[in-house]
Amino acid sequence: MSSVPENWIPFIPVHAPGQNRDIRLQRAAMPSAVGDDRLVRPRTSLLREGYDAGRRYFVHEEEVPQAGTKVTLAYNRTRWHDGRVALWLSARTHAGRGEASSGLSFDYLTDTRPTG
């Protein structure tokens, strides 16, 4: 198996409770590329929802188009008319650029013969 960049947090399809056809996407875990038994932890507040409390996180399948969704977090700052500063964190969604590839591959061959 090849390695995957650590910013790829997988979402796997699971059946909704009591449903045979309704599918939700559940946040899953990735092993760390460092080689130890640790798991890659989500870094953003959007993907960490419930992570520290050990709760599962679901996204409805219909919310993720085939082209994907890109979520951008940004801090915004402005001044009010009396000079006070307002600061907030915003999240924006944009259509993805098509199906991306993490580079994950299984059962591939590599040449292990010494060179020279």
Rank of each mutant, 00 (worst) to 15 (best):
W88V: 10
E99C: 11
P5Q: 04
G96S: 10
G50Y: 03
D37L: 14
D107P: 02
R79P: 00
F106R: 04
G96M: 07
E99Q: 13
T69F: 00
D107K: 01
G103S: 09
T112A: 09
W8E: 05
L87D: 07
L89M: 15
Y57T: 02
P5M: 01
I9P: 01
A29W: 05
H81K: 10
G50E: 05
G35K: 07
V34R: 11
A28M: 04
V40T: 04
H81D: 13
P13R: 03
D52W: 06
V4N: 00
H60Q: 12
V34Q: 08
T44I: 04
A29L: 11
I9V: 14
E63R: 06
A16P: 01
A67Y: 02
R48F: 00
I9G: 08
T78K: 08
S101E: 05
P13M: 02
A29S: 10
V85M: 06
D22A: 07
F106T: 10
P13I: 05
P10Q: 02
T69Y: 03
R43I: 07
G98P: 00
R79F: 13
D36F: 09
L89I: 15
S45V: 12
A86H: 09
A86Y: 09
P65A: 09
L25D: 02
P65R: 03
R92Y: 04
G18M: 13
P17L: 08
R55I: 02
K70E: 13
A67T: 14
G116L: 14
R27I: 05
K70Q: 10
I23E: 01
D36Y: 09
N76H: 13
N7K: 09
K70S: 05
S45N: 10
T112F: 09
G50Q: 03
R24H: 12
A95V: 09
P17T: 06
H94V: 10
L47K: 04
M1I: 06
E62K: 12
H15I: 00
E62D: 12
H94E: 15
L109M: 07
V40A: 05
P65V: 04
S105W: 02
T93L: 13
D37C: 08
V85Q: 12
D111A: 05
F58Y: 14
P114V: 12
H15Q: 12
H15G: 04
T115Q: 14
Y51W: 11
D82K: 07
G35D: 05
E62S: 15
